[in-house]
Measured scan of single mutants.
Amino acid sequence: HNLTITQGKLFFHYNPKLCLSEIHKMEEVSGTKGRQERNDIALKTNGDQASCENELLKFSYIRTSFDKILLRWEPYWPPDFRDLLGFMLFYKEAPYQNVTEFDGQDACGSNSWTVVDIDPPLRSNDPKSQNHPGWLMRGLKPWTQYAIFVKTLVTFSDERRTYGAKSDIIYVQTDATNPSVPLDPISVSNSSSQIILKWKPPSDPNGNITHYLVFWERQAEDSELFELDYCLKGLKLPSRTWSPPFESEDSQKHNQSEYEDSAGECCSCPKTDSQILKELEESSFRKTFEDYLHNVVFVPRKTSSGTGAEDPRPSRKRRSLGDVGNVTVAVPTVAAFPNTSSTSVPTSPEEHRPFEKVVNKESLVISGLRHFTGYRIELQACNQDTPEERCSVAAYVSARTMPEAKADDIVGPVTHEIFENNVVHLMWQEPKEPNGLIVLYEVSYRRYGDEELHLCVSRKHFALERGCRLRGLSPGNYSVRIRATSLAGNGSWTEPTYFYVTDYLDVPSNIA
């Protein structure tokens, strides 16, 4: 807008934040220059609390790290170098490059900038070799853009010569660093050979998330399962459950009422301010606690030095998902009996873990797994792929695949051998790939016309006998059925096997 004052003059007093240069501009645009008398524009009460600059400061050096910015700028000295009290560095987070010096300023003089007072450097006698002032900004957020400017702080001049310097606002972004852990990993099994893994992005990506790394490792069953005799009275049979499938998407929606109208769909109840505040506090606490764990609990591995020492970490090797089922080394339970199943799973520490690289999504279907087997899954978020990966501390989750139908069934015939004193040795093959492992066998036998009897055969007993022995049988026709019990439950009964026990007292003698 054009402003013209045809008559009258300007009068400025007691404006401590208004620089004289701005008042002189007002004289020019209003056409009143030359009308004012000496005392109409006070030299001592206008701009006496402001830094009124008329020179431009330029930054000469900028260096960044993930949490620091090192700045240096060209030296500046007023005509009387004693008038320079120091520099004021202003900075704040700036997602967009549209910041002005006066953003967030209120009537009390406060604003949204963080201000650092910096002492002037030592003055050199040689004007050509003056030290460049600077400042190291610490405690910054990774991968965050900051708006920065600097200006001088000078003393009051009796001659009211307006001098000083100020830089333009520059924008500097800190470097990326390792992201925080992925949030809320959930693993479920939808079949006997697959596990579905879902997660949420890290709360602090500290860069642009480029991919996720998912490692999985087959877990050995508890050692007590191999040692305890679950045929003993009072000892509860062990059981394991597989990871249940995901709930429906509708039930997972946030901010939804727990109660549904019987007449149909209901609208979600909005969260109160107290609920939102509580969630923010919980989120802040979780982030602080995660940072504490990362800094205190997890110790970084030592990389190899120039002395030739090897990095103890196993090298990563990509495998196809079809090879995942046989990740671990199978060892027989008892070496003397080769027909026992290889369900003991000690994992070799030198073995390469299978892994998958996930790009542009937060889910993965891990296939080719062994049925009813526990897996430990390790999830890392990465925001750099080359020249070397920059990934987060791992988040861990466990899951067990679903049982395989008929995996616990005894394959092959049940054979028998009759000894003296009416002892019958029953023999059968253990299931080759049971659900988890076989903890015991149930032997059901009966003599024709009598009630059915049951015998429990422990895992250890089966390994020693290759089956079991029935003792003290009365003469007669017998039928026997056997079924295995694994961590997933009972298998199917075998087809009945028949044998006849004679009275050993009636056996004919070869003595003449």
Rank of each mutant, 00 (worst) to 15 (best):
F289Y: 06
T303W: 10
S284M: 15
V501G: 00
Q384M: 08
P338N: 05
D204L: 10
T494G: 00
C468E: 01
F462N: 04
V359W: 06
D291R: 08
L364V: 12
S479H: 03
L228H: 02
T333Q: 15
L437M: 06
E247Y: 13
L470V: 14
F289G: 04
L437N: 10
R466G: 15
N208K: 14
L293S: 04
R353K: 06
Y445W: 13
E282L: 11
D503T: 06
V501R: 02
D291F: 10
T401D: 00
T343Y: 11
S284I: 01
T340G: 07
P387F: 12
S444V: 15
N421D: 11
G436E: 02
S262F: 14
L487W: 09
H425N: 14
H425G: 08
R400W: 10
E495V: 03
A394D: 08
E362F: 10
S239W: 14
G489R: 10
T415P: 02
D291W: 15
L369C: 14
E404G: 11
L455S: 11
R469P: 03
A488P: 02
S367I: 09
S284F: 06
K236N: 11
D323T: 14
G325L: 08
V414S: 01
V480G: 01
S304Q: 13
S479Y: 03
R319K: 13
N421I: 05
E281K: 15
R390S: 09
K287T: 11
N435F: 00
R400L: 04
T343S: 08
F499L: 11
F215D: 10
L237P: 07
R471F: 15
N208Y: 12
Q429G: 15
E249P: 04
F246T: 11
F289D: 15
N435E: 01
L232Q: 10
K432A: 12
R316Q: 04
R481G: 02
D506Q: 15
V334L: 12
Y498W: 06
V327M: 08
W216Q: 06
S509A: 08
G412N: 15
R483A: 04
V331D: 13
T494P: 01
D408R: 00
S203N: 15
G476S: 01
S304D: 15
H454W: 04
T502H: 04
S239M: 09
P387Q: 11
S248L: 07
S509P: 12
K287Q: 08
E227R: 08
S305P: 13
I438E: 01
T347N: 04
E356M: 13
V359P: 08
T347A: 12
L225T: 13
D261T: 07
G207E: 02
D229A: 11
L280N: 13
R390M: 02
L280H: 15
E217N: 15
E404Q: 14
I209G: 11
S486C: 01
Q429F: 12
R471M: 06
L293P: 04
F462K: 06
V334Y: 09
H416F: 06
T415Y: 13
T415E: 01
D323K: 02
R471P: 09
S492H: 10
K302A: 04
N339R: 12
N360L: 06
A263C: 07
L473G: 01
H371G: 12
E452G: 08
P496M: 02
E227W: 09
T401P: 03
Y498T: 05
V365A: 14
